[in-house]
């Protein structure tokens, strides 16, 4: 498995850059991902989404459906894409340290 080192900390990731162990996640990792996702700065709105994803994942063991995420955060899908250009899966979930989305994506 490849690893990435950012600001002195090493993370184990897969070939798509998803964190291998959600428990290792810290804010530093989100900052690392933002560079490869084309985001210049993490705003409060970014953190609102990231924190919500983390909370939901801890509570339910799955990533929320898009409709649930948009309903709770109040951000329409269009807004989510403005915040995370790669979208809620490849962008936001990766940044929040969640497991890589599966299925016929």
């Amino acid at each position: 498995m490849p690893t990435v080192t950012y600001k002195g900390k090493t993370y184990e990731v897969d070939e798509d850059g998803f964190l291998q162990d959600p428990e290792v996640w810290d804010e530093n990792f989100a900052h690392y991902v933002k560079d490869s996702e084309g985001i210049s700065e993490l705003t409060d709105e970014h953190w609102k989404v990231i924190n919500y994803l983390q909370d939901y994942y801890k509570k339910n063991g799955i990533a929320p459906m898009v409709r649930i995420m948009t309903k709770v955060t109040g951000f329409k899908l269009k807004k989510i894409y403005e915040l995370f250009p790669s979208g809620p899966g490849k962008g936001a979930c990766k940044m929040a340290g969640l497991a890589k989305p599966t299925g016929c994506v």
Binding site: D14, Q20, D21, E23, N60, G61, I62, A99, T102
Partner: peptide
């Protein structure tokens, strides 16, 4: 050993 880390068990 790593199922819980890379899978969503409920899914």
């Amino acid at each position: 050993s790593h199922l819980d880390k890379i899978c969503e068990i409920p899914t």
